[in-house]
Each structure stands twice: as structure tokens, then as C-alpha cells.
């Protein structure tokens, strides 16, 4: 039986964000937007979903009088990403 892929991560933009953050300590909203080619609105919505799931931490602060959003993956997010990759592997191996 296949394990269902984590619906939070099995979405292009959310998976892209988590894959970026997995190798970084933290990244700014603008960096994530640039690397994923997402629109600011869509990215905000997806970041909120990841935050609600406890996969990322979103830190909002002011820098030079401009709001700045920084994202960081949580231990729960790392565990979920690892589980997702394992599930993907079993899918691909069975498919061969």
C-alpha cells in the first residue's frame, strides 16, 4: 500500500520553498520569491500554510523602516521533508 504523500508538501510552490529552506539557515521573502519565480501574493499564502502546519517559522521585523519577512525551516519541517522524500522514493521504486 502506498502511503499518501504529505498534502502540505505535495504542492509545487510549497515544496519549492521547503526544498530551498532545507539547505539554508534562513532566507528573506524576496530571496524565496526570486528563486521560486512566484508572485508575492501567492507566496504569502503558501508561506502561511507552511507556517500553520508548523513546517516553517516566519519572522517579521522592520529593516530601514521597511517590513522584512524572514523564513526558517523548523525541526518538524525537516522531519516532514525527509518523510516526503522517503515516500517519493518508495513510489518511484515501485513504479519501476
Amino acid at each position: 500500500m502506498f502511503k499518501e504523500l504529505d498534502p502540505i508538501l505535495h504542492s509545487q510552490l510549497r515544496l519549492a520553498v521547503v526544498s530551498l529552506l532545507i539547505g539554508l539557515k534562513e532566507a528573506e521573502f524576496t530571496f524565496i520569491r526570486e528563486k521560486t519565480n512566484a508572485t508575492a501574493g501567492n507566496l504569502s499564502v503558501q508561506l502561511q500554510k507552511l507556517k500553520d502546519a508548523g513546517y516553517i517559522e516566519v519572522i517579521k521585523q522592520f529593516k530601514d523602516n521597511y517590513p522584512q519577512t524572514t523564513c526558517r525551516i523548523t525541526p518538524q519541517g525537516i522531519a516532514a521533508f525527509e518523510a516526503y522524500v522517503n515516500d517519493l522514493q518508495s513510489y518511484l521504486q515501485t513504479g519501476k
Binding site: 504523500l5 504542492s11 526544498s19 521560486t36 512566484a38 518511484l92
Partner: peptide, 24 residues
């Protein structure tokens, strides 16, 4: 945007793996 609308429907495990590689 399109990326979010595509969620489960057209997103295969192969594409998923490719996306992870690309982002890393």
C-alpha cells in the same frame, strides 16, 4: 498563480523530485 493551482493534479512524483533537485 499557476504553480499553486497545479497542486496535486498534474504534479507527479518524478516532477516533485526534479523540483527538489532544482531548488537545492
Amino acid at each position: 498563480s499557476q504553480s499553486a493551482n497545479n497542486e496535486q493534479s498534474e504534479f507527479s512524483p518524478e516532477e516533485s523530485l526534479q523540483l527538489i533537485r532544482q531548488m537545492i
